[in-house]
Computed example of a mutant assay.
Amino acid sequence: MQRITTKRIFFVTGEQGCGKSTFLAALMQKYALQPSGFITKKEEAVKEPALYMHPVVAGTAIYRYTTGNKVGICPQQKPIGFAPIFDIFGVMCLKQAEEVILSSIGDEHSDADCDAASLSPALPVILMDELGFMEAEAELFFRAVCDLLSDSRYYIIGAVKPHGTRFLPVLEQMPEAIVYRLTLQNRIKLYERLEQAQNFTSFLDAIGAE
């Protein structure tokens, strides 16, 4: 008998402009997810576009623009990632996400005044938007991501670049993970699945069964 693996990791991949981050935002809104983790945003600057990593805490992004969270630059010739920033700031975002989630779980379990029937604990979700090729030399960040991916306590959602990243092969080899290749053609179908599923876990089950 074939063993069915419970899905707990969902990543979208696809070419630029296909709507990866937009779908993740819709996913979080639909199921009232409040993940912690990080998002990366490209900002157009006077000299050259730059990529900044922003921490997300319990569903709220904390935007800042400093050299400490500037993880790369995007000149026309070739994007350049700053491995030390990923290794310091990126790892900090992931550790903070884990601490926030574990603290939340502890608070829920210790709240003796709550009626057990009325409890609706938030799912322990970590957000990684997105994993790309700029982190190629950021070994500490890579290990931190892999450690969280392999930790069965967490649900993880995110976006991953379709080319040139060592994260995608890791995700594709994990039985607990779903990597959905989003295109302009199948995007409507994915949103239909989002509307049909009653909750996040049933959404994972539906996508995983396809």
Rank of each mutant, 00 (worst) to 15 (best):
C74R: 13
T67D: 14
T60Y: 11
P124V: 06
V100K: 08
F142M: 14
E137P: 00
S120V: 11
Q29D: 14
T67Y: 10
L148Y: 03
Q185M: 07
L27K: 01
S110R: 10
A32V: 07
S120P: 01
A97T: 01
K42V: 15
T13F: 05
D113N: 06
Y31K: 01
I73T: 15
P84L: 03
H54Q: 10
Q77E: 12
M1C: 13
C114V: 12
G37W: 02
A116E: 13
M28I: 13
I188E: 14
V71N: 04
I88Q: 12
V71Q: 03
A32Y: 09
A116S: 11
S110Y: 10
C114W: 10
Y155M: 09
I9P: 00
T6G: 08
R181W: 10
I88G: 13
Y52W: 10
L27I: 01
D205V: 14
Q29W: 04
R8Y: 02
A136I: 12
C93I: 00
E99R: 12
L131A: 08
I178V: 09
E137V: 07
V145L: 05
L171A: 04
S104G: 14
I188M: 11
G132T: 07
A159S: 15
A117M: 13
V71E: 05
T183H: 06
K78G: 02
R153S: 09
P75D: 12
V100C: 08
D113M: 11
A26G: 09
G164C: 04
K47S: 10
M174S: 09
I39H: 03
G68M: 12
H163D: 08
H163C: 08
A136P: 02
S110C: 10
E98D: 04
G72L: 10
P75I: 14
G59W: 03
L24H: 03
I156K: 04
K161N: 14
N199R: 01
V91A: 08
A138H: 00
P162C: 09
G158D: 04
C146S: 13
D147H: 10
E176M: 12
A136R: 10
C18T: 12
M1T: 15
A122T: 09
G164R: 12
A83T: 02
L190N: 00
E15A: 15
Q16W: 12
Q173P: 03
I62A: 11
L182E: 02
T201G: 06
Q185K: 12
F82E: 02
C93Q: 00
E98P: 04
E15L: 13
K189T: 12
V57H: 09
V46E: 15
T67P: 05
A209Q: 14
I73G: 09
L171Q: 00
F133P: 03
E130H: 09
V56C: 03
P75C: 11
I9M: 02
V160P: 08
V125D: 02
N69A: 13
H109K: 14
T60K: 15
G106Q: 13
Y52C: 05
Y63C: 10
E44C: 06
F167M: 06
C18F: 09
Y31L: 05
L194K: 05
A144K: 04
D111T: 07
F141N: 00
F141T: 00
A83D: 02
K30S: 03
V160N: 09
L127H: 01
Y155G: 07
I39G: 00
S104K: 14
D107E: 15
